[in-house]
Design a protein around this nucleic acid. Sequence first.
DNA 1: TACTTTACGAGACACACTGTCTATGGAGTC
DNA 2: GACTCCATAGACAGTGTGTCTCGTAAAGTA
Lengths: 232, 232
Amino acid sequence: MESTRCINTATAYTDPVPKLWNETIEAHRRAVRDAILNTTAELAAEHGVRSVTMSQIAEQVGIGRATLYKYFPDIEAILLAWHDRQITEHLGQLVEVRDRTDGPGDQLEAVLRAFAHISRQSRGHHGTELGAILHRDERVVRAQQQLHGMIRDLLSEGAQTGAFRADIAPDELATYCLHALTAAAALPSEAAADRLVTVTLSGLRDGHSTQDDRRPTSRHEHHGHRAGHPEH
Amino acid sequence: MESTRCINTATAYTDPVPKLWNETIEAHRRAVRDAILNTTAELAAEHGVRSVTMSQIAEQVGIGRATLYKYFPDIEAILLAWHDRQITEHLGQLVEVRDRTDGPGDQLEAVLRAFAHISRQSRGHHGTELGAILHRDERVVRAQQQLHGMIRDLLSEGAQTGAFRADIAPDELATYCLHALTAAAALPSEAAADRLVTVTLSGLRDGHSTQDDRRPTSRHEHHGHRAGHPEH
DNA sequence: TACTTTACGAGACACACTGTCTATGGAGTC
DNA sequence: GACTCCATAGACAGTGTGTCTCGTAAAGTA
């Protein structure tokens, strides 16, 4: 009997229900669908998006290949559905956070804080740009580090002369800069890109709310986050 | 005779030299290599990274498939080499900009401005995260827009109450926010992510140097690094 | 000009993945 | 028990992959 085989629901999205036909048919289909999405995301994160195959996914999930085709026509569709689910979940969380807070200022702060944590948690999946495609090649990492190092050094010098805030490690500020400025790709005009630079720069100078910024950051976790840099 | 066929050097990196063996062997190999890189980037941008094949590339470039394998072992390697070339070129431009400027403050500003412009010009290739993989699906765009819209609305409200700067469109500020906070994925700790939120938020408030923001951004720009821009 | 080196295109090959279709059998319903 | 869904395994042609050989032509050398 091959119908005793389990469906891989390893990751956290679905309950670990190894039984087939767990309740109704619809619930079963949903469980299988989720398992497909999770498995695909895992494979993509591990071996690179380009190398994922339908055969791999079916085997890993524990279903027949033909069955997989009854859920999704191709891998693009799976990745799309996965992305859809991620965004929907995240958006739900953010809406909830927003509605639990009062006043636009505090609301935005709460939402952005939540978004930052979500971004952190889903690192390795979305947001890694070419890293996902190029399977974390050594050279890619080093190339990006050169850029990072250049910005960091300028920030470090500038902090000594008082041009930039000194309460946060230059390493972190450099990461902030580089990511913030990639927003330029989504902007419609050169003038908008210039305004983006202005905004980004004002984040580098001492904010008016110094009580928020005076945080130690001195002993904090040895800024050795260069090691685990999941950068593109 | 099939040796009269041209190598596709359409894009701007190499001179449009349709002749084989244009000068020396090394120059020829470099020309072919560049043509491969350009063609691959084009195909990836047009049909999605996942759908690019070695056969496609060879045909588009105008070389034999076996010949292509003498330049690169697989598509990952081509994408890698392309990315390498991009980063190297950009880094060179930024170093030049930096060395043309004096003082860490102005240097950083000049470099960041140049980086923003580079990001803008190479949009569609790198920096589009899953966009490059998912070939710009309608749903992906709309999902991201919902998130964007939510942030934008909060910013809009906040600007009316004076909590946030009103001199820049909420749309642009929302783009800035979302991109800046994706930096959280590269940070080592939750505490660092919190500091990132702080920095990002201070970019949203009226900077302490208001004369800085009212800058016309007229004469300051155009560092000329666009001239030799080999972008696709 | 004659010779050597280098690069190329074309074809062939086994192998893997794809997308589709069939036949079989179990899960739920009457 | 008879019947309808649904998943499954297996088979199939089509295509991309990675590697090979062979004949040809140009680049560099004498």
